[in-house]
Design a protein around this nucleic acid. Sequence first.
DNA 1: ATAATTAAGTGCGCCAGCGAACAGACAGCA
DNA 2: TGCTGTCTGTTCGCTGGCGCACTTAATTAT
Lengths: 243, 243
Amino acid sequence: MSSTQVKSAGNSLLNSLSKKEQHRFMAHCELVQLNLADVISHVGDPIQHVYFPLDSIISLVNPVDGNAGMEVALIGNEGMLGITLMLGSDVTPIKALVQSEGTVLRIASQAFLTELELLPALRLQIMRYICVSFSQLVQTTVCNRFHVVEERLARLLLMIRDRKHSGQFYITQELLAQMLGVRRVGVTKAASSLQLRKLISYTRGDMKINDIAGLENASCICYQTDKNIYKQILHTKNMFEIN
Amino acid sequence: MSSTQVKSAGNSLLNSLSKKEQHRFMAHCELVQLNLADVISHVGDPIQHVYFPLDSIISLVNPVDGNAGMEVALIGNEGMLGITLMLGSDVTPIKALVQSEGTVLRIASQAFLTELELLPALRLQIMRYICVSFSQLVQTTVCNRFHVVEERLARLLLMIRDRKHSGQFYITQELLAQMLGVRRVGVTKAASSLQLRKLISYTRGDMKINDIAGLENASCICYQTDKNIYKQILHTKNMFEIN
DNA sequence: ATAATTAAGTGCGCCAGCGAACAGACAGCA
DNA sequence: TGCTGTCTGTTCGCTGGCGCACTTAATTAT
C-alpha cells in the first residue's frame, strides 16, 4: 500500500463550529485509528459512539439473504456515522465497516447528545447533512437499478478519491465488488476497460486515477448529481435562524 | 374502480398527540382530496406544505437519465411528506405524486414549523419516522439490486394494501411498472404468475389480494424487514425524555 | 352502433450480469 | 529457493430483464 495521502483539514461538519466551540467539542473526542475491514457496528447494537472521519472512509453496508449485500453509502470527512442517534433512535440501523484506513474523531453517544444541546450550529449542520445523505441514498437506489457496472465503478472511484483527498489509494477489486454488489469478475472487466481508456491504472490494490475529467465522463450522472445535492443543501441559508 | 375502502383512523404520526394537541394542530390543517397521478411536488420547488395522508398514498419517485425512473418510497397514513423541512432544508428533494386516491391533511410549511416548536412529542415521533424511512430506503436499495420482479411486485402490493387498509384497490400494471422501474411487460409476467398461484386476481386495474400469507411468502424478505424496522423504531422508549 | 382509448398478454432477438471453475502473476515468508 | 496466499484475468453456459412490435379485450366516447 503505497498511496500518498493528502491530509484533509479535519471534519467538515465540525468545521462549522467556531474555533472555541471546536475546542470545546474536541475535548470530548478521542482520535482513533481505523484499520481496513474493521467492522464498526452491527445492526441492532446500541450506538456507543458517533464517528467523524478525518482521512478514513466508513462504508455503510446492507446484507441481504445471507449474502454480503452491498454498500449504500460512503462516509468521509464530509460526514459522520451515527445520525440516527440525533433522530431519537439509539440502535444501530446498519452495518458499518472501514473501507479505507485512517483516523476518526470518536465521541461517546451521551456526550454527543449533551454537546448538541449546547451547539445549535452543529445540530443544524448535521441536520442538513442528514438531508444530503437522504437524497444521495435515493440517487444510489436508482443508480443501482439502471446503471451498468463500469459507470458505477467510475462513480465509486471518484467518490473514494474525494474522501481520501488523493487520486491514489489502496483498494482491491474484491472489495470494490462487495461495495458495488457485483461479482469480482464484473469489476475486473469494468476496471480493465477503464484502464484501457487510460483513466485509471492499478496493480494489486494500488489504485491510481489518471484522468479525473475522463473518469467523470465515464461515470454515470449520479456522481455529479451527488455533488450538486451536497452543494445545494449545505450552502443554503439558515432557515431556522430567520424565524 | 370498485375498491371497497376501509377508512383508517387518521394519521399515525398525528395520533401520537393528545386529543387536545391534535385539535390544536388540525386547526392549521386543511383536508384535501388527492387524485391519481397528481404531481404534488417537483424537485427543486420550495416546500409549500407538509402532507399527512389519511387514506391516500403518496409515492416518492426519482427520475434518471430522462426516463421515468422508479419509486423509492411509499407514504401512507403511517407517515408524512416533507420531512426535509424539519431537517433544515426548504427545497423539495424528490418528486412526489399520488399513487392512490384519497385524502390528506395539509399544513403550510411555516405553520408546521411553528407548531413543531410547541409540540415536542410530535417532533420526536416524526424524527423516529425519519429513521424508519431511512432504514427502509436502505432496504429498498438492496432489494432493487438483488430481487426479481415477481418478489418485488408481491412486496409492493402488500405495502399498498397496508396503506390502503384494504386488500382491494385500483392500480394498473403500467403504474406498477413505473413504481418498480421495470417494463410493463415484466409486471404482466409477474402478475400473471401470482394470479396463477391464486394469490391475487385482477382485471383492468381492479386489483385484489386473495391470499395475504401466500403473497408474503412470494415476496422477498424485504417486506417483513420493513415491518420489523417500523415496529422496532417507533416503539422505542423516549430517549430524550430520560435525559 | 361504431370508433377510439386504455389495459393486459404474447413473441422475438439481445445483452448485462451471474455462477462456477480455472490460470497466471506477484508478494511475503520459511 | 520454493511455498503459499492474494490479486487479477479469462472462459462458458445460463437467465432475468430489455426494447420493440403486435394482439386481444374491455371500457368510454361519439
